[in-house]
Design a protein around this nucleic acid. Sequence first.
DNA 1: CCAATATATGAATATTTGATCATATATTAG
DNA 2: CTAATATATGATCAAATATTCATATATTGG
Lengths: 122, 122
Amino acid sequence: MKKGKKDKEGECEVLCINERKVASARKAMKSDATLFKLAEVFKVLGDPTRMKIVSALLQEELCVCDLTALIGASQSAVSHQLRVLRNMGLVKYRKDGRIAYYSLDDDHISSILTAGLKHVEE
Amino acid sequence: MKKGKKDKEGECEVLCINERKVASARKAMKSDATLFKLAEVFKVLGDPTRMKIVSALLQEELCVCDLTALIGASQSAVSHQLRVLRNMGLVKYRKDGRIAYYSLDDDHISSILTAGLKHVEE
DNA sequence: CCAATATATGAATATTTGATCATATATTAG
DNA sequence: CTAATATATGATCAAATATTCATATATTGG
C-alpha cells in the first residue's frame, strides 16, 4: 500500500526526525544557492583532464599547445575544458599573437588543491 | 588533407611546444595517479545533494532521517549518495539500533570547503 | 512472533558530460 | 593575398551518473 506519493519532498515517510537538530543544522548551513555554486566549482575540478590543466598552471602560465603536449589529450579536448574552466572563473588567458597563454584566475585555487591533497595523501 | 591521424596522443599537429616549459611543468606536477584521486574527491563534492549532506555534517552528526528532512531529497537518494561519500572516505557512520548516524570522516574536508567558499564568495 | 520503522540497494531511466570529428576563426610568414 | 599555424567551437555519440521505484534487510516495540 504505497504511502500517498509524497506530498512534495518525501517528508511523509520519515518519522524519526530530530526537529531541533535539523533546525539547528539548517540555520548553520550556507544558503542553497551558495552550496550549489560551491558544488559547481568542485565539479569543475572533478575531472582528470581539467585537474591536470589546473595543476599544470599552478607552476606558470602555459599555452594551449604546451598544455596539450603536457597532459596527453587532444587539442580540441583541452580547448573545450579550458572553456569550462574559464566559465567557472578558474582560469584566464592573454593572447599573444595567435598563441593563448592560460593561467589561474584565482589565488584560492592553490589552497583548494592543497586542502584536497591532504585528504588524498594521508 | 588530414594529418595522418595522430600516431598516438595528438602530438603531430602541435608545433608550438615550448619543450623547456613543458618539461619543467611536468616535473613539478603531482603524479597522474595522485591527480586522478584528487579529481575523484572533488567530483564527489561536485554534486548539490552530496554537497548539502557534507555541509550539514560540518555542524554535527546526523541520521539519514534528519539529512533527508534537511536537504529535501528522498530517503533513497540520500542513502545512495551517502554510500558514494562513504566509499570516498568522506563520511563515516555509527549504528545506534536501527538509526545510522553519519559524520565527516576527515578533518580536511572542512578546509576544502572553506577554501572553495573563498572562491565562491569573493 | 508480528508490524512498523530506518536504512540500504538493485534495476531502470533520464540527464549530463567528455571526447572526437569536422570545421571555423584568427594571426602570421612569405 | 595565400598557406600554415594556433585556437575555438558546434554536432554527435558513448559513457557516466543521479534519481526514482520497488524491495530487501535489520531492529524495535508490543
